[in-house]
């Protein structure tokens, strides 16, 4: 495969934290990861599996100690530091608890921070802030002068997301974007992410614990454990692999759980079923067979 086929390409990446101190610890070992332009890819794994370390390589916050990271055709390495500003503009990362990073007093000022840092003209910055705020569901006219400390947790997260979208990035990386949100805000945020991927064609890479989110959003998944790849494939392939799911204690969505339980109990079902509608259809079919 040629390089240009991928928006993000990671090969044989290893990373050791605090190298050369008594506290050194290997976080990634020979990890690979690919994402095509416009794809929505999930990274799954338990705490300490290296997910966060991996995503920090995608915009050059960490540079590869060994292995290669290629983003949008640009090589990320110690010797290619001059490419970093361009890469950070095209690849944004929303970290965990992004509401902690807001520092301005007013909503619009904080969202404008990124575009202003890149020296865009004022007019365009205003345009982008407006667009980003409208997109995340904070109406520009009424919300731009709200003080940030008066916002709810869900609203703050929207501000943080808008701050990144105002950079108009090609690749958006999200680290557990819905952690700690109430169900409504969560649903809303997932829907926004889906729109970014499906309607705007941006490449989305997200880290998650929730398989419901995976089944809702992702085209493909990478499963990490102990700093190494253990599996990857389409959502259908991963959910069909019961042995894998049990071994790495991946919490499956309730729909998949149901299908697996039925299979274990001797019912004849397609093990690669996932998603609520599909499961309903399968169960209907089963019921019809039982009755007939």
């Amino acid at each position: 495969m040629s390089l240009s086929e991928f928006a993000v390409q990671v090969e044989q990446l290893s990373h050791t934290y605090m190298k050369g101190t008594p506290f050194q610890q290997e976080a990634l070992h020979d990890v690979y990861f690919h994402a095509k332009p416009g794809e929505c890819v999930a990274i799954i794994g338990h705490t300490g599996s290296g997910k966060s370390t991996l995503i920090q390589h995608l915009n050059g916050l960490l540079l590869p100690q060994t292995g290669q990271v290629n983003v949008l055709g640009l090589e990320l390495s110690e010797s290619n530091r001059c490419a970093l500003p361009e890469i950070r503009r095209q690849v944004v990362v929303l970290f965990q608890q992004p509401e902690d990073q807001l520092f301005e007093k007013y909503v619009a000022d904080d969202i404008a921070y990124g575009p202003l840092q890149y020296g865009l003209p004022k007019k365009e910055v205003i345009q982008r802030v407006k667009h980003a705020m409208d997109f995340v569901g904070l109406p520009f006219e009424t919300m731009r002068n709200r003080p940030i400390y008066a916002l709810s947790g869900g609203q703050k997260r929207k501000v943080a997301l808008a701050g990144l979208l105002a950079l108009d990035p090609q690749v958006i990386v999200l680290d557990e974007p819905t952690a700690g949100l109430d169900p409504t805000s969560r649903q809303e945020l997932l829907y926004k992410i889906k729109r970014l991927s499906r309607d705007e064609g941006r490449t989305i890479i997200f880290v998650t614990h929730s398989m419901e989110e995976v089944s809702l959003l992702a085209d493909r998944e990478y499963v990490l454990a102990g700093g190494s790849n253990v599996a990857d494939g389409t959502t259908r392939e991963i959910f069909a692999n019961r042995e894998l799911i049990h071994r790495y204690r991946i919490g499956t969505p309730q729909s998949v759980e149901l299908v697996h339980t039925l299979i274990v109990n001797g019912y004849d079902m397609n093990s690669s079923t996932f998603g609520v509608e599909e499961t309903v259809a399968e169960v209907r079919k089963l019921l019809r067979q039982e009755v007939g």
């Binding site: 916050l61 950070r88 990362v93 970290f95 992004p98 902690d100 950079l167």
Partner: peptide, 13 residues
């Protein structure tokens, strides 16, 4: 470090 990274991710240098 975390904050520095988060700000760098949105354009701070």
């Amino acid at each position: 470090d975390k904050i520095r990274k988060a700000q760098a991710a949105r354009g701070a240098s």
